[in-house]
């Protein structure tokens, strides 16, 4: 017998003659205390993100490229990791062209192994979309894709995320159910609730531990 069979054998023997406990899941307990009037959802999400040093910008589907450009300019950043394969990537490129701006756009178009050094040390900012937001905890739902891989939201010191106000839901349970996560989880699914942080030295909060030092959430109020 191998370790697997021995472990399972012991566990089964310990449960012999017993009945499994029924699943009496109490969804009300996970939704009722975490429900908000529609007009308060974005406010709550923003205030929770701000409480953990996240920056939130209320903007529109048309205006956000200008806000992103301003955010980059104010930080002296002249390049952005953004996917040309996404609608928002194309919109931002179009905005730059139209306004004659020189921000260099970089695509995550090769396996990470081929440009690790550049990604880690010469990529100051990235922009990704989100699958929604969670008002209860101030969280973004991010499912990395081939166009926007896992490290896009982790390695660059500044991460800018686009969030449609209409996709901000009350709580995790709700979005998990309505988006049917259990049936279709990707290889990596993320909840992101602020920039990277740690309190490992004398309980003193410090931001920018290993992930982004800054997170800016562009909330598209009309989208």
């Amino acid at each position: 017998m191998n370790a697997r069979d021995r472990i399972l054998g012991k566990l089964k023997q310990s449960l012999a003659g017993t009945t499994p406990i029924a699943d009496d899941y109490d969804d009300a307990l996970l939704t009722a205390p975490w429900s908000y009037p529609a007009e308060h959802r974005v406010t709550r999400l923003c205030s929770l993100l701000q409480a953990v040093h996240g920056e939130t910008v209320l903007t529109t589907a048309a205006e956000w490229p200008a806000r992103v450009s301003e955010a980059l300019a104010s930080r002296g950043i002249d390049e952005l990791l953004i996917s040309p394969a996404t609608a928002h990537g194309q919109q931002f490129a179009g905005y730059l062209a139209l306004n004659g701006l020189v921000t260099r756009l970089k695509a995550y178009d090769r396996p990470v192994e081929q440009w690790k050094d550049e990604l880690f040390f010469s990529t100051p900012a990235s922009l990704t979309g989100t699958l929604g937001g969670i008002a209860a905890t101030g969280s973004l739902v991010v499912w990395p894709t081939p166009a926007e891989p896992r490290l896009m939201s982790l390695v660059p010191p500044l991460h800018i995320a686009l969030l449609k106000a209409s996709e901000v839901v009350d709580n995790l349970y709700q979005i998990m159910q309505t988006q049917r996560w259990a049936e279709r989880l990707p290889t990596n699914a993320l909840l992101i609730s602020g920039p990277s942080k740690t309190a490992d030295i004398q309980q003193t909060l410090a931001y920018g531990a290993h992930g982004p030092k800054e997170l800016i959430v562009m909330v598209l109020q009309d989208a």
């Binding site: 310990s14 449960l15 012999a16 003659g17 017993t18 009945t19 406990i21």
Partner: peptide, 9 residues
């Protein structure tokens, strides 16, 4: 619990 070895709540 139903039996002594049933998992306890």
């Amino acid at each position: 619990v139903a039996t002594p070895q049933a998992t306890r709540l």
